[in-house]
Design a binder for these strands. Structure first.
Lengths: 198, 198
DNA sequence: GGTTGCTATGCAACGAGGTGCATAGCAGGA
DNA sequence: TCCTGCTATGCACCTCGTTGCATAGCAACC
């Protein structure tokens, strides 16, 4: 199970409450890993019992108190062990591909709207990624001397690794969305052949 | 739940036993939809009870008898209803992306072997897809007059749709694997910067 | 004053998915 | 002869993920 480790990584990047984690999973992390707040609370409770995370009550003004979680030594060790474990098969589930092959036994033209809707979702995600990249990683062409860092613990080796690795994962998301848009155009062209050309 | 519909589509393409379905899911279908034989048997039994599929006992020589399933009218109707249902969010789980971001808090260079292994898997899948495309859909450039069909019910509108839609899904798989290989090269180049360049 | 909405946490129940194991016939090799 | 391996189906169990619901404080709006 990698949800544990996804949460650990997120907490290492920045400690936070279950609620905050759930919102991170809706945003940046959620594009390559989804989780509901229920799962997150359950896993946090279990990891707390195993000593992987530490909890700290944080009173807040104007809103309910929160429990801020941070990674304990045992959690770091568990993450390290998972990182060096060689396995990982990568299982895939593409509903849309099932629909496309299934459309051969129904009306292919009826799928056009659905495919267009999916295309729009990927277009939106791509725009979101590109905005995030421009915001967090500056413009790609000129890279002679990065602009001044203003985050916590700016400069130095560890922060650079964190930024670079977050960036390469984001580039993966961008490449994925671009590929999907091109492919969905291919799908639409294929469906159109049945609609008009018979 | 789309496993039901994935099985229905597979049975429409060609009736077969649970065991045969499980093997199809290991091969061509398995690259965009995975399922173990346990799930398949369970779903087949449930769909039989709901009247979505018909069963036929087929005695075999030299091996155990099998139950050959085929899609009933109610199953076709259920598939049709699912095809016209607009929803489908597409949730993603990328363990490798979690590992890459997590490597910032461990040793980034230790991930190189793992990433190379994944790259090889995608290289293998790509080769497998391309071989399947060459075998089933001929060479891409010249498309003036397709070669003689030798499958059941050759020619005609429905078969063409089935072939064309299977092909476009396969092209999606090819595009995905190519994208992954390019991205994993990007990841390796990023990791190498920490290994050597500090 | 009532409604809506956001932060924040959690329980209960269900269904889907995966692992391990069992059975059983037959083929082929050590 | 025994062991391994393939076809073929299935049970039992456990975990993971999702849905629905509940609670509770406070802010903003009508």
């Amino acid at each position: 199970m990698a949800l544990d480790h996804a949460i650990l990584v997120s907490l290492l990047e920045k400690p936070g409450s279950g609620y905050e984690l759930a919102r991170r999973f809706e945003r940046s992390i959620g594009y390559f890993w989804t989780a509901t707040h229920q799962q997150i609370y359950r896993v946090l409770k279990r990891m707390e019992g195993e000593g992987w995370v530490d909890v700290r009550d944080v009173p807040q003004h104007g809103r309910p108190d929160k429990k801020e979680y941070s990674v304990a030594d045992a959690g770091r060790a568990a993450l390290s062990a998972w990182l060096s474990a060689p396995i990982e098969p990568e299982s895939v589930r593409h509903d849309l591909a099932v629909k496309i092959r299934g459309a051969a036994f129904d009306d292919p033209a009826a799928l056009v709207g659905e495919v267009e809707r999916h295309r729009q979702v990927h277009e939106d995600r791509l725009a979101h990624y590109l905005a995030g990249e421009a915001r967090d990683f500056g413009e790609p062409p000129t890279e002679d001397g990065p602009p001044a860092e203003d985050g916590p613990s700016a400069g130095g080796w560890p922060l650079d690794a964190e930024r670079e690795l977050q960036h390469v994962v984001l580039r993966g998301g961008i490449a994925y969305e671009r590929m999907m848009i091109v492919w969905l155009d291919d799908v639409l062209a294929t469906l159109a052949r049945f609609e008009t050309g018979r």
